[in-house]
Design a binder for these strands. Structure first.
Length: 286
DNA sequence: GTATGTACCTGTTTGC
DNA sequence: TGCAAACAGGTACATA
C-alpha cells in the first residue's frame, strides 16, 4: 500500500529509467485510471505522444513527471492509489493482468501503469508553476526540508479531531497513510482517538519526529510491502513489513510492554494500537 | 469554515 | 460446494 516512502522509491526509479526519451505511443487500456484527465482518454494519449518526460517530482503521495518545455509547467500527474504500480518493461513482455496504460518510450523500453483496484490514476496537468494546480492543496510532507514543524504543531493543537484523522488529512501533512499513522502513534505512545487539542506541544513534536523516523527507516529499506500489490519501478518488492510494531499486529505482544496489540474499526478500515502504551481518551469519540 | 461519513474499485478471505 | 459478506484503504465529494 503505497505511502510516502513507497512513492519516493517509485519516483527515484522513474527518474533513472524514463526521462529524456520521447514518447512514441500511448495506449489507454482502461479509461478509469485516466478519469481525472477531464478531456478524456484519447486526449490524454494525444497530448502526451511526442512529448518527453524531463523530471520526476513528488509531493506526499502524488508524483508528477514534468514534460519538455519546462517553461509551460506541463506534467503528467500520477497517483498510485492503493494498488498502482509503475513498471518499466520491454514492449514484448507479456501484459500484466491489470495493465491499464502503456507508454512506448521508443528506445526498446515501455513504461506501464498497472493497477488492480484503480483507486490510482494519471492525468495531464497544464501550467503548474511549482506544483501541478490539481495538488496545490496538498501539504508538504515531513521529509521535505521546507516543512514547518511549528505550523504543523499549531494546526494539530487547534483541531478537535482525533489525532489519527489529522495525520491522515493530506492538507495538514502529506504522505502519511494508515500504516505509518499507526506506527508513528505507537512509537509516540499516543492513542489515535485523542483530540489534537488535548495533546501537549512536546507530544505533537514527538509524534512528528516518530512519523519522520518510521518513514525514513522505511525509505532506507525500499518501502513497505505486504504482498504483490506493491512493487517499485523495477518490479522489486519492499520488505519493511518485517519491522512493523503496530500495524497488522493484532493479538501479537507489544514490543515494549508485551500487552496484546488491539485492532479497532476506524473510518471503514482498521487501527492498531497497544491498549497499555496508548491509553484511549476517557471520553470516547466516534 | 470545520467535521464527519461514504462512494469508488477488485481480488482474496472468511462465514454460513 | 456455493454464494454472500467482509476486508484492504487514499481521495474526492456530500452532508451535517
Amino acid at each position: 500500500m503505497p505511502e510516502l516512502p513507497e512513492v519516493e522509491v517509485v519516483r527515484r526509479g522513474l527518474e533513472s529509467h524514463v526521462l529524456q526519451r520521447p514518447i512514441a505511443h500511448v495506449e489507454v487500456l482502461h479509461e478509469r485510471p485516466v478519469r481525472r484527465h477531464l478531456a478524456g482518454p484519447e486526449d490524454f494519449a494525444d497530448v502526451l505522444t511526442g512529448r518527453t518526460f524531463v523530471a520526476a517530482r513528488r509531493r506526499g503521495k502524488y508524483l508528477w513527471l514534468a514534460l519538455d518545455d519546462p517553461a509551460q509547467g506541463d506534467a503528467m500527474l500520477v497517483h498510485l492509489g492503493m494498488s498502482g504500480q509503475m513498471l518499466v518493461q520491454t514492449p514484448d513482455a507479456p501484459a500484466e493482468r491489470h495493465l491499464r496504460v502503456r507508454f512506448d518510450l521508443g528506445d526498446g523500453s515501455e513504461l506501464r501503469f498497472v493497477d488492480q483496484r484503480m483507486f490510482g490514476g494519471l492525468a495531464v496537468s497544464v501550467g503548474g508553476a511549482i506544483v501541478p494546480p490539481e495538488i496545490a492543496h496538498i501539504a508538504l510532507d515531513p521529509l521535505d526540508s521546507a516543512f514547518d514543524d511549528e505550523t504543523f504543531v499549531a494546526k494539530v493543537r487547534r483541531s478537535a479531531s482525533g489525532i489519527k484523522r489529522i495525520l491522515l488529512n493530506q492538507t495538514v501533512v502529506s504522505g502519511v497513510g494508515n500504516i505509518y499513522a499507526d506506527e508513528g502513534l505507537w512509537r509516540a505512545r499516543i492513542h489515535g482517538e485523542r483530540p489534537g487539542s488535548a495533546l501537549t506541544r512536546p507530544q505533537v513534536r514527538l509524534l512528528l519526529e516518530e512519523v519522520r523516523a518510521v518513514m525514513t527507516s522505511a525509505l532506507a529499506q525500499g518501502g513497505t510491502s505486504f504482498d504483490a500489490l506493491y512493487v517499485n519501478v523495477n518490479g522489486e518488492s519492499g520488505y519493511f513489513d518485517r519491522s512493523l510494531d503496530a500495524y497488522g499486529q493484532e493479538g501479537r505482544a507489544c514490543a515494549r510492554c508485551g500487552t496484546a496489540i488491539r485492532r479497532v474499526a476506524f473510518m471503514n478500515r482498521s487501527s492498531y494500537f497497544c491498549p497499555h502504551c496508548q491509553p484511549a481518551p476517557r471520553r470516547r469519540r466516534t
